[in-house]
Design a protein around this nucleic acid. Structure first.
Length: 428
RNA sequence: GGAGCGGUGGCAGAGUGGUCGAUUGCGGCGGCUUGCUAAGCCGUUAUACGGGUUAUACCUGUAUCUAGGGUUCGAAUCCCUACCGCUCCGCCA
């Protein structure tokens, strides 16, 4: 949710941001008009209420003085006023809902450092890391590597739940566990995050606070019977842990990391990346979330990106860092970096992490605040980033470290988590 | 799944229809005291939104006693529903 004061004072600024972000659902003019109407209606309603409150107080006094007849006449007056208030309130409520609906569709404003462009073509590569490996043979795509090793069984995954629900077998499954444990250990032991184990199913207010609702409703799995959503990312439960709370200022910043299964319908992506595990409906991810003071939140974003990059570097995977343009970044974000890892088998970069500063946008929706030194209550800034999403890291690992004989030699850092094994060989 | 009980301010805990936004204690904040001293005394203590001054402060109004409905001139207080928590039973990884 954007700052209503910002909209009232500088509607042009908001209008420009909306246009830069290419949010066609957002109607700034309408939001402003409804807001003005709502305020007018509210003032009127409150004035009426004030009159009625005064009448009601008088009734109380009259009753105590045993002036029943007089009280009755005031009662009648109050009752009549009550009818008027009821109508005025209904109108105010209607306008408020309309206003909220209009505001909900207005995205967060992009930071001034974000390149203005219509789409992904305007993204800017800010860094590149690693040497591209050269192969003495033609590198296979991960689905072939995984199938030959017997560690990735896509047909049997489909049998159970449909396409997009991969099944990892043997060393493949163990690799998943190893990655999760290793990544979380690095975040907890070296980067100062406190780990969480969270619900992977969440209610509407939770989804609303992080901005999944209303825009991405069609993207999520929904459990009709209970009115609950399967989370598309651990960002959702983690960001919501302090929803409707006022945190003591001296406990900020708070860093949290959580591993979770993530569910995405990928509704708009039919036909894209249908092979392999680049785009799946269920996957695992380690997420980092920060709750910080507004001052310096963009510095926190740089450090967050660094935390994710550390992992790719230690895995020895080639990657690039993109600063997303206004047209490509998400609804709630003020600034986003994507980390794209190189996958030599499929011959392209894959998004393995997305790190964003949401400024106070999520905090306002979720009512996540802190008390500053002066005792004032203020909204926190929230940030989050993947660190990292498993499937695409696995794709990069299998494709980058495949050998001519079909085996895969894994990076040093993972070996303690793989029982000391360095190489995955075909299962007989 | 069955039965019962409960949800009040940062916390604890009063309050069963009208001067209750809510006694009191703790905590916090400000001040005083500095020979009753690992203390005492005094004061203060929420949030959201509207309006007045559309930067703050401040003033004022409305709302908020889990949430949403209802009864009533008037509800923290009565009724209904939902959610959450606790206890017992059943079931179960």
């Amino acid at each position: 949710m954007i700052d209503i004061d910002l909209l009232r004072r500088t509607p042009d600024l908001v209008r420009q941001a909306v246009s830069n972000k290419a949010e066609k659902h957002a109607d700034v003019n309408k939001a402003c008009e409804i807001d003005a109407a709502w305020r007018k209606c509210r003032t009127e309603t409150e004035t009426l209420q004030k009159s009625k409150n005064d009448l009601d107080a008088r009734i109380g006094l009259l009753m105590r003085e045993k002036k029943a007849a007089e009280a009755e006449s005031v009662k009648a007056e109050s009752r009549a006023l009550g009818e008027k208030i009821k109508a005025a309130e209904a109108e105010a409520k209607r306008l408020d809902e309309e206003r909220r609906a209009a505001l909900e569709w207005i995205p967060n404003l992009p930071h001034e450092s974000v390149p203005v462009a219509a789409d992904a073509a305007g993204n800017v590569e800010v860094r590149h890391w690693g040497e591209r490996r050269t192969f003495p043979f033609t590198p296979l795509a991960h689905w072939d590597v995984g199938e030959k090793l017997g560690i990735l069984d896509i047909p049997r995954g489909s049998k159970i739940a449909g396409s997009g629900f991969p099944l990892f077998v043997g060393a493949g499954s163990r690799l998943c566990r190893a990655l999760v444990n290793w990544m979380m250990d690095v975040h907890v032991q070296e980067h100062g995050y406190v780990e969480l184990n969270v619900p992977v199913i969440a209610n509407r207010p939770t989804m609303y606070a992080t901005g999944q609702l209303p825009k991405l409703e069609q993207e999520m799995y929904f459990v009709e019977r209970d009115g609950l959503f399967l989370i598309p990312t651990a960002e959702v439960p983690v960001t919501n842990i302090y929803r409707d709370e006022i945190l003591p200022g001296d406990t900020l910043p708070r860093y949290h990391t959580a591993y979770s299964v993530c569910f995405r319908r990928e509704a708009g992506a039919a036909g894209k990346d249908t092979r392999g595990i680049i785009r799946v409906h269920q996957f695992e991810k380690v997420e980092m979330v920060k709750f910080v003071r507004p001052e310096g939140s963009f510095d926190e974003l740089e450090r967050l990106v660094g935390n994710a990059e550390t992992l790719l570097q230690r895995l020895g995977l080639e990657y690039r860092v993109l600063l997303l343009s206004t047209g490509d970044m998400s609804f709630a974000s003020a600034k986003t970096y994507d980390l794209e890892v190189w996958a030599p088998g499929v011959g392209r970069y894959l998004e393995a992490s997305s790190c964003s500063n949401f400024t106070d946008f999520q905090a306002r929706r979720g009512n996540i605040r802190f008390r500053d030194k002066e005792g004032k209550v203020r909204l926190v800034h929230t940030l989050n980033g993947s660190g990292l999403a498993l499937p695409r890291v696995i794709v990069a690992l299998l494709e980058t470290y495949q050998n001519a004989d079909g085996s895969v030699t894994l990076p040093e850092v993972l070996r303690p988590y793989l029982g000391g094994e360095a190489t995955i060989r075909p299962i007989k």
